[in-house]
Design a protein around this nucleic acid. Structure first.
Lengths: 219, 219
DNA sequence: AATACTATGTCAAAAAATTAACAAATTATC
DNA sequence: GATAATTTGTTAATTTTTTGACATAGTATT
């Protein structure tokens, strides 16, 4: 498939943003775009855009720019969105439910195949046509059904144990919403964290910092 | 208040993580910790930890290490968690509801003061003791009640308009869950993004990339 | 068809971030 | 109390990332 030589993490993190903006342009019927124009819209420098895209190949044409549609598709391919990875969701609380309802997994390379919880009141009910299963049946399900990734929407103290169980049955890719750092215990796993608490604290810092700079009454 | 000279963004992003790990240590009754031990636990280099912490002052003692409890409190203070910023939530869908239910705002420097939605079926119902108000009353509420930040849990196409409205009444700090880049239109605002789609795509990339490296059948 | 213009890909320079090294200070030990 | 062992704070070196510069190639126009 693709296989690009050591793309740096800052570049990877920018890819979804390129994808998003190019998708918008495509929807507006824009045919071509220059790195300069993209720069104005996205807030990256034109130089960075050219360098980023060039990691994966020369998609542009000198004197013309980049063809929007094909670049959009190309980045989707680079991101692996044309895959269909089977993902299971652990934890059907507010957050798990929101993630299950809110995300269009299919457009992001995934398919939600099962949802697990340990609350008897929830087990048997449905979220989006998917029946919530007993957490006890986790291992059986994973051994009977190809499972590529697990989405962690469980409390901190449950995360560690469930990660161990999943690791044992070979599930090594995690989308982690729990306030727990999975990567601390294993190093041959892939984790993408969504630490909402951290994010909120960073907002708190930024606001506090900005206030301190303007309110110079104390200084 | 604090006021630190230009702390770099990588450092700021690591602060919540320090806070989290130190909180765990404190709960376990650990009194002191060296940068080396923290390094083992957290996966940062000891050198980085020392340099990060030293941005804000010399909290450690040579030959001894860092006192866990006071360092924990110090970082909480640096993050501004001892503030109480009033925040409103826009959008009471699955995601908004999950955010409202799931986060302990009080521990992160915030207080949730109002929730807005434009769905008549939702208006008047409660989430966590907070009544959902009509989005039409947004401006009135903000002018009558001190509002420091807004949490965006609305669809992409609604985000832009609501941001404009909030900007006009002086709300300039946003926790943004919408698939929309608020920072593109204004530069005197503070935005902390939670782009779940981007995060999922990055996971997709990582999985695809790892697979390509192991499956060398095609290469 | 020739000329002026545009915009990429790429190489070099600058800036930023991470890691390493070590002197100074403190603790623990004998 | 003197000595050995720790461990910080800080400076320097390295690595990574971003920005700038420009030759080259293609487009549009006359």
């Amino acid at each position: 498939m693709h296989r690009y030589k050591n793309i740096s993490s800052p570049v990877i993190k920018r890819l979804p943003r390129y994808y998003r903006f190019l998708g918008e342009l495509r929807d507006k019927g824009v045919i071509r775009i220059s790195s300069r124009e993209l720069s104005d819209k996205m807030g990256f420098t034109a130089s960075q855009i050219r360098q980023d895209l060039n990691c994966f190949g020369g998609f542009g044409q000198q004197g013309y720019g980049y063809p929007v549609e094909s670049l959009y598709n190309e980045i989707g391919h680079i991101l692996g969105l044309d895959h269909t990875y089977n993902a299971i969701l652990i934890g059907a609380g507010n957050l798990g439910k929101a993630v299950a309802m809110h995300m269009s997994f299919e457009k992001r390379g995934f398919r939600l195949t099962a949802i697990f919880d340990n609350d008897p009141k929830k087990i048997g009910t449905n979220i989006r046509d998917i029946r919530i299963s007993d957490l006890d049946s986790l291992e059986r399900f994973c051994s009977e059904n190809k499972t590529d990734a697990a989405i962690f929407c469980v409390p901190k103290n449950a995360a560690h144990e469930i990660a161990d169980r999943l690791y044992k049955v070979g599930v090594r890719n995690y989308w982690n919403f729990s306030h727990y750092d999975l990567s601390v215990h294993y190093d041959d796993i892939i984790v993408e964290n969504v630490h909402l608490n951290d994010s909120l604290m960073i907002l708190c810092y930024k606001i506090s910092d900005a206030n301190d700079l303007t309110d110079n009454t104390t200084a």
